[in-house]
Amino acid sequence: MGMTATEIETMIRAALPDAEVTITDLAGDNDHYAAHVVSAAFTGRPRVAQHKMVYEALGGRMGGVLHALQLTTAVPN
C-alpha cells in the first residue's frame, strides 16, 4: 500500500504552508521515508512538539498506511 513522497509532501504543506519539505524514499517501497521539514511554525516549540505537528499533518497515517518516517525538523535561519 504505502504513500508516495508527493502525497506526504502535499499533506505536510497543507498543514504548514510555509514549510520547506524534502522527502527521501529510504527503501524504494513507498513505506519507509526520511523527511526534513523547515517551518517558522516550529519557532519556540520543543523538537517533540515540532514532530507532533508533522505527524498530525499526516492525518493518522503513521503506523498504518505509512510504516516509517525518519523525521528531522528545523526553524528557518
Rank of each mutant, 00 (worst) to 15 (best):
I23Q: 02
L16C: 07
P76E: 12
P46G: 11
Y33W: 11
H51S: 09
T22L: 10
G64L: 07
P76H: 09
T6H: 08
D31P: 01
A57T: 02
M3T: 09
T10E: 14
Q70T: 15
T72S: 14
R45A: 11
Y33K: 07
T22C: 04
T22P: 00
A14R: 14
P76S: 07
A40M: 04
T72V: 14
D31L: 02
R45M: 14
G64E: 15
T10C: 03
R45T: 14
A19Q: 04
T43Q: 11
H51R: 12
H36S: 11
L66D: 13
A49I: 01
Q50G: 06
G2N: 09
M3V: 15
D18M: 00
L69E: 11
L69V: 13
P46C: 14
T73L: 05
Y55M: 13
T22W: 03
A57H: 01
V75G: 00
E56S: 10
A34N: 05
A27V: 03
G2F: 08
L58R: 09
M3R: 11
D29K: 01
A27T: 05
I8R: 10
G2V: 09
T72C: 10
N77T: 12
R13K: 15
G2R: 15
R47M: 09
T43P: 02
T73K: 04
V65D: 14
R45D: 04
D18P: 01
E56Y: 02
T24M: 04
A49D: 02
F42I: 10
V48M: 14
R13T: 10
T72H: 13
V65M: 13
V54D: 09
E7I: 10
A40E: 13
A35T: 04
E9V: 05
A74P: 03
E9T: 13
S39P: 04
V37A: 01
T43S: 13
L66T: 13
A35L: 07
Y33P: 04
G28N: 06
H51V: 04
H36W: 04
A34L: 01
A40T: 10
G63I: 02
D29P: 01
M53D: 11
H67K: 15
D31F: 00
H36T: 13
R45Q: 13
F42V: 12
S39D: 06
T72P: 04
M53P: 08
A74R: 07
A74M: 04
L71Q: 03
D31I: 00
Q50K: 03
D25F: 06
V21Y: 02
A34I: 02
P17W: 03
H67G: 10
V75D: 00
A19C: 03
A74H: 03
E7V: 08
H36Q: 13
Q50R: 13
L16W: 12
M1T: 15
P46W: 06
Y55H: 15
